[in-house]
Design a protein around this nucleic acid. Structure first.
Length: 365
RNA sequence: UCCGGUGUGGCGCAAUGGUAGCGCAAUCGGCUGUUAACCGAUGUGUUACAGGUUCGAGUCCUGUCACCGGAG
């Protein structure tokens, strides 16, 4: 099981500095967890992840169940051994895939029927099955099987999805047998403050070792996401970790850390890197743009990642334009480093109890 | 030199005589619990040149030039 300790509270915001202690290591919070859907953080090795300071990564139940299969991974010693990552892992339950691949799925009280995006074969995942798969994978933190509410959604549908998520959370908890895995509950409730409150009360009532805020960053306006996060975060138990699922930009991480969120994950640094979108101090650049074709500077002069210490924008642009596989690696390494460093700066400010003196906006250099 | 073939955006190619398009490249944009090295948008043309036939020619005819193949 995990232990969570709040070391320090920020007097300038609701942020807190914490340590999440898991069977496979400690995690400094607030933290960002790189996404490794298919038992790999795309384009990075274990050594890369360790070198940039990642203390925990994500895996995905849906993807690993379909390929290569949770049974296979279990027979090979579990997900950690399989992918040679000895530090903590959190697996998402597959609930998000029900939401994002809704054309292939059918939701009932019992669970979700879906067709594989790989070969079209039919499958069924229930809350019990999601727990069983995650137990086979062996992650340190596992997630309840939920139904993220789409945006926009009316009050009735949001209520329906919230209630189903609560019933499924209870079933997940009842199904859990493993003693060294911690199951987190997930709050839904869409963009309705009273439903967020209702969901929080129901999920907290079930008593999980950690709580996630789900169903955000699904296309809603930024102020809605912030309002829902702020409201929900404040309702969650003070001494349990709070995980905002799927968020976000560096700005989001700062804003939501200051609302008391402890854990984040997002595909943005990794996916965007592969597509040429690079995070730099205060903004971003698109390395594919022609203006960088002869630019001898590093991606970010303030960055001390391996890529920035060794390669120019001109070279990196050449690599990505030429479709070279090294581009994926070097650019992902930079963005992932940027995110880890960003969280480090957030933690330092809380530690020193000074206001957050840095910011990031999605603007070009 | 003769015979045959081909000349259409940067490149590779389409277009029963009826508004010249497609792929790639290029340029730009998007990406928030990864179906994503992905997706989308946008340029660029005296259709080799000069004539002719036709209501209308990338398309048919004549000539010139260029390139490719075969023969010598």
């Amino acid at each position: 099981m995990i232990k969570f300790e709040v070391l320090k509270k920020h007097s300038h915001s609701s942020a807190r500095l914490g340590i999440l202690d898991t069977p496979r290591g400690k995690i400094d919070t607030p933290c960002f967890m790189p996404v490794g859907t298919q038992a790999t953080v795309k384009a990075l090795t274990r050594e890369n992840l360790e070198s940039i300071g990642a203390q925990i990564i994500l895996g995905n139940t849906y993807h690993l169940y379909l390929r290569p299969g949770h049974d296979l991974i279990q027979s090979l010693g579990g997900l950690h051994k399989f992918m040679n990552w000895t530090h903590p892992i959190l697996t998402d339950s597959g609930g998000y895939q029900v939401f994002s691949m809704n054309k292939l799925t059918k939701v009932t009280e019992e669970g979700v029927k879906f067709k594989s995006h790989i070969d079209g074969s039919s499958h069924f995942i229930s809350p019990e099955k999601a727990v069983e798969i995650q137990e086979a994978l062996g992650a340190d933190i596992i997630m309840a099987f939920d139904e993220p509410t789409p945006y926009p959604a009316d009050l009735a549908n949001t209520q329906k999805s919230l209630s189903l998520t609560t019933r499924w959370a209870k079933r997940c908890k009842d199904a859990l047998q493993s003693k060294n895995q911690s199951l987190f509950g997930i709050i839904q409730g869409g963009m309705y403050p009273n439903l967020r409150k209702e969901s929080s009360e129901q999920i907290i009532e079930l008593d999980f070792p950690g709580y996630a805020i789900g169903g955000l960053s699904v296309g809603e306006e930024k102020h809605l996401m912030n309002d829902m996060t702020e409201l929900t975060s404040a309702l969650l138990p003070e001494l349990k970790p709070r995980y905002l699922m799927g968020v976000g930009t560096p700005e989001d991480l700062l804003t939501c850390s200051s609302m008391g969120v402890d854990m984040f994950d997002c595909v943005m640094p990794t996916r965007n890197a592969r597509n040429g979108y690079l995070f730099i101090t205060g903004g971003k650049i698109n390395i594919r743009n022609s203006q960088y074709h002869n630019d001898p500077k590093p991606i970010d002069s303030n960055c001390s990642c391996y890529t920035c210490k060794n390669y120019s924008r001109a070279y990196l642009r050449h690599l990505i334009m030429a479709g070279e596989i090294l581009a994926m690696h070097l650019l992902t390494l930079h963005n992932s480093y940027f995110y880890q460093n960003w969280m480090k700066n957030i933690r330092s400010a809380i530690e020193e109890d000074v206001p957050f003196s840095f910011s990031w906006q999605e603007t070009d250099e």
